[in-house]
């Protein structure tokens, strides 16, 4: 059963073509890692999945909704597809608990007491139950990112997209965030992760996608082989660069 399907998707920003003829299927429960040089279209691809960017042509089916159809309610897609950003994007005017409860309260209109209990459980899961009353500005980057993950999980989404979740973090903060992501993956969440964390891609990912210049050059379930012995020349060049720097 597929969760996300790209069929011949193109995306233009003005004259610039950010995505070129993308075909990709993500099944439910799959963890797909996307890597590639900057400007290759990884983030754009991710942002299309929850409608932050609209595709120019082709077909994109997410959770059985057609995103190219103008009648599709984007807010309904986004309720079911969470997103974790590179720069966290926590609500600066709300405390940690409110950041997590706002979605279920306002968008899902669920019972407040129940939502708060769940939010506290989620904060516990990401190891931040003691920070419930803090504001985002008072937390470290790694802590903010874990709150952002809890905020996303609070909506009980069918899939979560991660857009370079550890790229803005200090090295020692990265481990905590990756641990939380691994936990979520083990619970069967469908995940699409744009990252350069090769450890995560190898040990948690079921599949690897390599992008360059708006195109998918590699889409492989053999993650270890992709890193150890890449066949595609552009992927080979990229991997040698990130390993030998």
């Amino acid at each position: 059963m597929s969760m996300i399907e790209f069929h011949d998707v193109n995306k233009y920003f003005g004259k610039f073509q950010a995505l070129k003829n993308i075909n990709l299927t993500v099944d439910r429960g799959e963890v797909v890692t996307i890597i590639g040089p900057s400007g290759s279209g990884k983030s754009t691809l991710l942002r299309c999945i929850n409608g932050l960017e609209r595709i120019t042509s082709g077909q994109l089916i997410v959770n059985d909704f057609d995103l190219a159809d103008k009648k599709t309610d984007m807010n309904r897609i986004r309720k079911n597809v969470g997103m974790v950003f590179q720069h966290f994007n926590l609500y600066a005017n709300k405390n940690v608990l409110q950041n997590v409860t706002l979605g279920p309260d306002l968008v899902l209109k669920r019972d407040k007491a129940e939502v708060e209990q769940e939010a506290r459980d989620l904060l516990k899961m990401v190891g931040l139950e003691s920070k419930a009353d803090s504001f985002p500005g008072e937390l470290s980057g790694g802590q903010q990112q874990r709150v952002a993950i809890a905020r996303s999980l609070a909506m009980k989404p069918k899939a979560i997209l991660f857009d370079e979740p550890t790229s803005a973090l200090d090295p020692e903060m990265i481990g905590d965030v990756l641990d939380v992501m691994q936990k979520i993956a083990e619970n069967g969440m469908t995940m699409v992760v744009v990252t350069h964390e090769m450890g995560f891609a190898r040990h948690v990912g079921n599949r690897i996608v390599f992008m360059d210049d708006g195109k998918i050059l590699v889409d492989s379930s053999n993650v270890n082989q992709f890193f150890d012995d890449p066949q595609e020349p552009r992927a080979k060049e990229f991997i040698s660069k990130i390993i030998n720097h």
């Binding site: 986004r78 309720k79 969470g82 997103m83 950003f85 706002l102 979605g103 306002l106 968008v107 909506m155």
Partner: peptide, 8 residues
């Protein structure tokens, strides 16, 4: 974007 991404 953070707000829209959870369906607001």
């Amino acid at each position: 974007e953070g707000a829209r991404s959870i369906g607001m």
